[in-house]
Nucleic acid binder design. Sequence first.
DNA 1: CTGGCTGCAAATCTTTTGCATCCTG
DNA 2: CAGGATGCAAAAGATTTGCAGCCAG
Lengths: 134, 134
Amino acid sequence: MEKYKDIGLKLTPQRLAILGYLEGNKEHPSAEDIYKAVSKKFPTMSFATVYNTLETLRERGEVLELTIDPNKKRFDPNTKFHHHLICLKCKKIIDIHSDYNLDISKSDRAGFEIVGNHIEFYGICQKCKKAHGS
Amino acid sequence: MEKYKDIGLKLTPQRLAILGYLEGNKEHPSAEDIYKAVSKKFPTMSFATVYNTLETLRERGEVLELTIDPNKKRFDPNTKFHHHLICLKCKKIIDIHSDYNLDISKSDRAGFEIVGNHIEFYGICQKCKKAHGS
DNA sequence: CTGGCTGCAAATCTTTTGCATCCTG
DNA sequence: CAGGATGCAAAAGATTTGCAGCCAG
């Protein structure tokens, strides 16, 4: 937690609660997930604070904003380079840490300077496979 | 255009205009882009019709809904398997048709049944590189 | 004809913003 | 103490929905 001071964050109780919720979190929560969870400790917590804090963390590179879900943003406190495996039914997201060697042929590159990549794998998770209805 | 009848689409003039706009379109337009373009021909065109038509096309597998842009959905009429290269500054999206062999180790797979994948490459396009201010 | 489609407006959902007050550093 | 952070409510966007009337098949 100390590291957050170093990046110029003012550590309010609300922020500590948000940071605590995010720390080690593998759920790739949405702003609402975070709001709901943290509201239990701070009934006055507002969405503005959640979004504010997330935006600040994002600027500092402490969380990633995922665009995986068409309906809302989700956030990932794991900033190590990794990919995602997404269940098409329940939207559960799993981290993939394998390394892939992805070159783009010069013709495809269209003059772009490539700075990164992200792979989304799609599938059906075990739970949804068993509940093979819907 | 004939193929659309086959998938049970009622071909109204509005839909033909939307389909015409999408055909061969490499811009990965948002609903608003489509609305604006098609409104020129149909001043009464409504967003509802655009969204309706896109949803119908998506169900039929005729367009892909891209989640690349955090702020809005974008649509891709190119349903051939391909990846995307995105300019971080201007959000321009380019199609990448290279093939990559992406296996997931059994341990990473977490019991998922994998059905597909999509790679997003990030970079800076030539135009934005030249205009090297923000 | 008839069911699906259109267009309008209102509703919903997510995210952002303005502003007075508060509190960390 | 000052400037950044909070919380509330209102605003802004994107998308969805209800519904009456319309038109392609």
